[in-house]
Design a protein around this nucleic acid. Sequence first.
DNA 1: GGGATTCTGTTATAAATTTCACAAGTTAGG
DNA 2: CCTAACTTGTGAAATTTATAACAGAATCCC
Lengths: 214, 214
Amino acid sequence: MAVKSEHIPKATIARLATYIQVLSEFKREGTDVVSSERLAEACSVNSSQIRKDLAYFGEFGVRGVGYYVQDLITSIKRSLGIDRAWNCALVGVGNLGRALLRHREFSRKGFIIRGAFDCDPYKIGEVVEGMEIVCSRQLPAKVKELSLEIGVITTPPERAQRAANYLVGAGIKGIINFAPARIAVPKHIHLEYVDFFHYFYAAAFHIRFDDNRD
Amino acid sequence: MAVKSEHIPKATIARLATYIQVLSEFKREGTDVVSSERLAEACSVNSSQIRKDLAYFGEFGVRGVGYYVQDLITSIKRSLGIDRAWNCALVGVGNLGRALLRHREFSRKGFIIRGAFDCDPYKIGEVVEGMEIVCSRQLPAKVKELSLEIGVITTPPERAQRAANYLVGAGIKGIINFAPARIAVPKHIHLEYVDFFHYFYAAAFHIRFDDNRD
DNA sequence: GGGATTCTGTTATAAATTTCACAAGTTAGG
DNA sequence: CCTAACTTGTGAAATTTATAACAGAATCCC
């Protein structure tokens, strides 16, 4: 599935994820066809925005009709590259790491955590959710053996860079960093920072700001 | 702490959070003063971007010198409204909810989860991390009693709207929704959606896209 | 003390993103 | 078959966001 255009805005990717969510809802409700207008309303965006976002990847609708819900879900998933499974390595089995390992939604969405790594000797050998925790030094071997492509860092911040180094050295293609620390990786490695405190900060800011306007 | 300007971009809020993170790192390393250039490099952004972001809130630097690290941290925190604690209600004590309750970072960052709510009779009365799970119907009483201001929804998607209704009815000011479902709230309630699968989707998309370019 | 250097705050410029507007395609009904 | 009612895909316009450029302020060194 090729993209029509060079660069796709980050915001578009985020919205596509929302579209899938809402479309799945429509599907459960038994809706077969939906217009960009109706989808837009459910997603709280402009309908042109939706058509523009989709236009980056192709033409998925029928003029005068709308979009076939199931087809559109399939098309968006293919566009995003989530029409297949992705094997993930999780590095750092603390509180957050364990929560992610237990989170069923990952495999349901096609992101399958196949390896759990930690450098703490007390944790190595422990089994979490049917998965044995392995020493981080074994990453190169395991990445090759299990075709791991995405690394998930859930270490404390001071160990995030080392985890990243292990992952890069092992030949991983992308890293999703949940640790509250900036890390450096070669530029051919795709890197995403996840920090849900951003959302709390935004909420705090807006609540206080809105209050002050009275 | 007033803002100088009307509207502040969402991206600015997210970057401010990053600045705090990196500045804290500098502080730990013993750096007292930092230039926008050096901070920019550590955050992988443009230095004008940083000065622009800060200009929304005031003048925090000294020309010819730079920014005093501790002062800037304090100023940004005050600007974001996180120079004080926020009391939070968590609704939905499943896997994700429990992980958040156990996550020490929340109270360390000033977001204190003071109430855990669920409508499952089997969970009510159970104690997680020293907090008793309470029936969601008690939200109005507890919100008043404990001055809860931010609601965190970690229910399954089909129960997210009901959780939101409870929270809104109880007089909460903002909602952070971790459930993979869109919800409707009155427009004076600040609403943030958290979906870390967005980041996985983005990673999947870019990895596949970059591969195809060879 | 003053000239060179550094660095912020802010204005000007450029780039990116979103919204508008409409031609082109589809369906339904008489 | 033809008109009316819809709805997509897309180029143009508007808006927003990011980058560059520079005046004003502080420090350093001779």
